[in-house]
Nucleic acid binder design. Structure first.
Lengths: 143, 143
DNA sequence: GTCGGTGCAAATGCTTTGCATTGAT
DNA sequence: ATCAATGCAAAGCATTTGCACCGAC
């Protein structure tokens, strides 16, 4: 599997765009987080490493990474966007604790199979899906 | 099954709040739409019927209906919130066409069973879930 | 020297809030 | 009288955009 930066570089090249230091910084910050992240967290991560990338560039890079299929939008509860590195990984779904906010990722091939079956019945061609479970984790204080 | 307005009224009463004409208007508009809706659409719907409810009150009422468990947030793709009447209905999931934007609702007991199984394995107690399939509908023009 | 890239600040657009007024019990 | 509800306009907040400047090829 090609390293992420070359995947991104290749994508950019195909669009006549450049792989700049700022774009590399954003990608590095995403790799460092390795999980669900928000735009603001990337800014903090980069600052921590002494890199100053503007908010605008960060958002613009996130946008490119989405287009490239390297990251996807993940959670869907808050108003804020959450993203997640996806390239080279199995798609992951999320379970969120309604009391503690704890987030657990899981994957289920059964789910994908079910999705494909539902699509087939209706004559649609599946592309992707999102599944999020709201639940209470065992370590939540019982009310 | 109790009519929606009494469910709402009962909820409000339990919180020491009132069932006002404006709140009734919002609920009526939601019932009239019968599907996924946005705040702005409710304002239009109400205007169409000659009711003037402010944007602020509409949002405040949506908030109360969410608390009451009468509606839930539905789609999760755009920045905008989408809601859906849920009380007295089976939870419904969504399939969105990536080319035409067409929206289809479906329900799957299998999905709920799968959700419960996943929770059980991890020791969590399931409360709710959301599932959205991204696909291409058969009536989309092939690229 | 032409394009794209960047940062800044301003704009956007949905949603929320502060506040003065109004209404119900 | 008290307590909540309403409408308006202003504020919030994540995200996007316009613009001037910079740099690579």
């Amino acid at each position: 599997m090609a390293p992420l930066c070359s995947v991104f570089r290749r994508y950019l090249k195909s669009k006549g765009l450049k792989y700049t230091a700022e774009r590399a910084d954003v990608l590095d910050a995403i790799i460092a987080r390795d999980g669900v992240f928000e735009a603001e967290e990337l800014l903090l991560e980069m600052r921590k490493r002494g890199h100053r990338v503007s908010k605008a560039t960060t958002y613009r890079t996130i946008s490119l990474l989405l287009e490239a299929g390297i990251i996807v939008q993940a959670l869907f509860d808050s108003k804020q966007s959450h993203y997640q590195l996806i390239y080279g990984k199995e798609p992951r779904d999320h379970m969120v604790c309604m009391k503690t906010g704890k987030l657990v990722e899981f994957q289920s091939t059964e789910l994908t199979a079910l999705r494909n079956r539902i699509c087939k019945e209706l004559g649609w061609s599946p592309v992707a899906h999102r599944f999020q479970i709201y639940a209470v984790s065992p370590d939540a204080p019982r009310s």
